[in-house]
Structures are given as C-alpha cells and as structure tokens.
C-alpha cells in the first residue's frame, strides 16, 4: 500500500496520507553523538525539510537545537513513527532515539 509522505506548511509538519502527524516544536530525546555530545540530548525540532521511509519506519530530516549545549544543526533520518497495517503510529518524542543509517534499519532504544 502506497504511503503519501511529505513536509507541509514551510516544514511545520510531516504529513502521512494527508493527515498532519508529526509537528515541529516538540523536544526529542536523542542519544549521545546523534546530534551533539550531550547524554541524552534534548533537541527542539524547529523545522522539517524532508521525510522518507526505511522499511516500515518513517524518518524525518529536520533542523533543531539542543536545549543544553545550544548546538544548532540539521539531523537526517530521525525515526518519527512506524507504519502498521497501513496506519501511522507516531513515536513519542520522549523515547531515546538514534538516527537511521541507510540500510541498517531504525534504532529506537526505548
């Protein structure tokens, strides 16, 4: 089943099948080294600039800022949810995340 995935409204959302599913302005918890050297890093996502799928995992490219050390950077292929039986199931931003290495599958640690 084809999934329609796109960023919307100047990068404010990830839209999945024409439904606004993942919003900017949440604080995501990322493991060390994914974004900066903080452990864990609490990263405010300020805008999405790309999205895609890796298997059943929906990933997003975003710009963000670490709330502890202030690093401002982009992050590629952040897992933001999964497609289960054709439906999108979002990950909570609080769970500790790593990014997806192409071909390696998604890493979600909690």
């Amino acid at each position: 089943m084809a999934i329609a995935l796109r960023t919307l409204d100047d990068g404010a959302w990830i839209s999945v099948n024409d439904s606004r599913q993942v919003s900017v302005s949440d604080v995501w918890t990322l493991s060390r080294g994914v974004f900066c050297e903080c452990e864990p890093a609490y990263v405010l996502l300020e805008g999405f600039f790309g999205t895609g799928v890796d298997g059943s995992v929906v990933v997003a490219d975003a710009v963000g800022q670490c709330l502890e050390c202030g690093t401002r950077d982009s992050i590629d292929r952040l897992p933001v949810g999964r497609i289960v039986d054709g439906e999108f199931k979002p990950y909570g931003p609080e769970g500790i995340q790593s990014t997806v290495d192409p071909g390696a599958g998604a890493v979600r640690q909690t």
């Binding site: 409204d9 100047d10 990068g11 606004r20 900017v24 302005s25 405010l44 300020e46 805008g47």
Partner: peptide, 10 residues
C-alpha cells in the same frame, strides 16, 4: 503563535 499557527513554538 501556537493559538492557531502550525509553525510557532510558543
């Protein structure tokens, strides 16, 4: 702001 806007953080 977040009252109505998709992009706003606060």
């Amino acid at each position: 702001g977040t009252e109505f806007c998709s992009l706003s953080i606060v």
